[in-house]
Amino acid sequence: MAVKVSMKVNGKPVSADVEARTLLVTFIREHLRLTGTHVGCDTAQCGACTVHMNGKAVKSCSMLAMQAEGADILTIEGLAKADGTLHPMQAAFKEHHGLQCGFCTPGMVMNAVDFAARHPNASEQEVREALDGNLCRCTGYHNIVKSIVAGSKAMAGAK
């Protein structure tokens, strides 16, 4: 069954006729060709597909595109400034070597940005707990945690 779906992605209105079974992540990757959002599992655990829906981190592999009807979606491609300047959380990941192969990174950063916006002074332990929906196989999380603690402070400071 074909349905029409409309939403805003990275500030731009988009709409398309898709099969009803289209996942939000498929819509983002295949229809919009925004391939920064990744798929690393099929059981909603790795979090590589994390995007923001109306300002909250969600797993785009675990919802239909239709569930985002009318929503404001932000993907990793929409995070840096238009001139290419990195978002403070992205900059913190770079500064603290919070990424290696880069595959989990977009999901990590998107979850981190949402978390930091709500918990500007989180401790390392709180950050670790907030990453319960994101898997990384490269970093052992050590530097991701450092990045998020620093990125949270930078975000608070940039306000």
Partner: peptide, 10 residues
């Protein structure tokens, strides 16, 4: 390599 990975350009 980080810039491309951090901006979804990998």
């Amino acid at each position: 390599e980080d810039y491309r990975f951090l901006t979804g350009a990998g």
